[in-house]
Simulated assay, not measured.
Amino acid sequence: MTLRDRLEQALAKGHENDLDHLLYNERDHIDDLKILRDAAVLIAVTDRPDPGVIFVQRPQHMRNHPGQVAFPGGKIDPEDHDPIDAALREAHEEVSLDRSHVDVIGLTDSFQSGSGYNIQPVLSVIPPDLPFVADPTEVESWFEAPLEYLLDPKNRTTHEGTWNGRKRHYYEIYWQDYRIWGITAGILNNLGKRLDW
C-alpha cells in the first residue's frame, strides 16, 4: 500500500466518527464565528520510507505570529476557488512548491484562532527532497520533521496560558531546535487522532 493510499484510507475512516475531545482551538472563545477570515494551510507529507512534514518558520518582522513555526498557508483570497486552491497558492508563494507536485488527499477539521481566522488544513503527499526556496518576506526558513514523531502523543505536551484575559490550552512539540505549538500543534494532534497513527 502506498503512503497516499494509507493516508487516504485512514483519513476517511477517522472522519466516520466524532472526536470525543476538545480540539484545543479558540472556537469556544469567539462570540461570532462569521466574523472570522478564512484561511488554509497545506499539510505536505513527503513520500519516503520515513515520511516527513514540511513546515515554515515565520520571520520575526511579521505582524502576525512572528517567529512561529507553521504549515505553509495563509488567507483565502477572493480569486481562490476553494481552500485547496488557497493552500496550494500559498505554498507556492512561500516555498516555491509547484502545485503539480502536490497530490491532495483531502480536508480535515478546521480550526478557529483567537487572532481571527478560520483555518482549513489540507492533507497532501509530495515527492521527497524537492528544491524549496523560501520567500524571505514570508518565510525565515523551512524544515521537515518526521510524521511519526509529530503524531506520537508522547512527543506533545499540554500547556495553559492567558491571552486577551482568557485562559487557553495549547499543545507544544519540540523537534530539534524548533518549537511547534498553538494551532499548528493542535492540527497535528487532531490529525493523529483522525489517522489513528
Rank of each mutant, 00 (worst) to 15 (best):
R4C: 06
D5M: 07
R6D: 04
R6Y: 10
L7P: 02
Q9F: 03
A10Y: 07
H15Q: 15
E16A: 11
E16T: 12
H21Q: 09
L22Q: 06
E26A: 15
H29Y: 02
I30L: 04
I30W: 07
D31P: 06
D32N: 14
K34H: 15
V41D: 05
V45K: 00
D50K: 06
P51V: 08
V53Y: 11
Q57I: 15
H65Y: 15
Q68V: 11
V69Y: 14
F71C: 02
D77T: 11
P83T: 06
I84V: 15
A86F: 06
A91C: 03
D98P: 01
H101M: 05
D103P: 01
T108R: 11
S113A: 01
S115C: 09
N118R: 15
V122F: 12
V122Y: 14
L123N: 00
L123G: 00
S124V: 10
P127M: 01
P128F: 01
P131T: 07
A134P: 04
D135P: 02
D135C: 11
D135A: 14
W142G: 03
E148N: 06
D152G: 03
D152Y: 08
K154Q: 09
N155Y: 07
N155F: 05
N155H: 13
T158R: 08
R168S: 02
Y170A: 06
Y174E: 14
Y178M: 02
R179C: 11
I187A: 03
L188I: 06
W197V: 02
